[in-house]
């Protein structure tokens, strides 16, 4: 039950990645400031007031005014300032590994755990117990009394 819920949630989360379609054609500076980094100070553009950050901002503003789409702007930024200008690596080529490894790792170890857990549930406990609807009858009465005493002791 909860496994299914978990999977459902993971799938849901995957589907809910940042809504890109709407802002693709008309990007804003504020939006790009969250997705672009100042390559020398390793901070989001939004946080940085280094001279190069101001240059990047001016560059983006000019491209927005020229009517570029978001991916066009990003492409130009990369060729101008290097790949480190993108705050998250692109999802292709070598950089795809950055995204894929955690997901594959999670899926792989999830599978291993699921298999292990399944195997652990198959392990039967000490001998099958045919008529154990109520276990009291099986116990030696003296032992049962000691057990109840022990339990009462725990309650103090």
């Amino acid at each position: 039950m909860s496994v299914r819920g978990l999977l459902l949630a993971a799938v849901l989360a995957l589907l809910l990645a940042p809504p890109t379609a709407a802002s693709e054609r008309h990007p804003t500076l504020a939006e790009l400031e969250h997705e672009v980094m100042c390559p020398t100070c390793h901070q989001l553009l939004e946080l940085s007031d280094a001279p190069i950050a101001d240059r990047i901002r001016a560059f983006i503003q000019a491209r927005i005014e020229a009517g570029d789409t978001k991916s066009e702007i990003k492409q130009r930024l990369v060729s101008e300032f290097g790949e480190a200008v993108l705050a998250a690596p692109p999802t292709r080529g070598f950089e795809l590994l950055a995204w894929l490894l955690p997901i594959l790792g999670l899926a792989g170890s999830g599978l291993v755990i699921a298999l292990l857990a399944w195997r652990w549930t198959r392990l039967k406990p000490e001998a099958a117990k045919p008529h154990l609807v109520n276990g009291f009858s099986e116990l030696d009465p003296k032992l049962a009394r000691r057990l109840d005493e022990e339990l009462a002791l725990l309650d103090r």
Partner: peptide, 17 residues
Amino acid sequence: YREQVGPLRRRAAETLR
């Protein structure tokens, strides 16, 4: 509860013994 209490009691009794 009924299903589990028996085996658990038996296990506890075994350790006591």
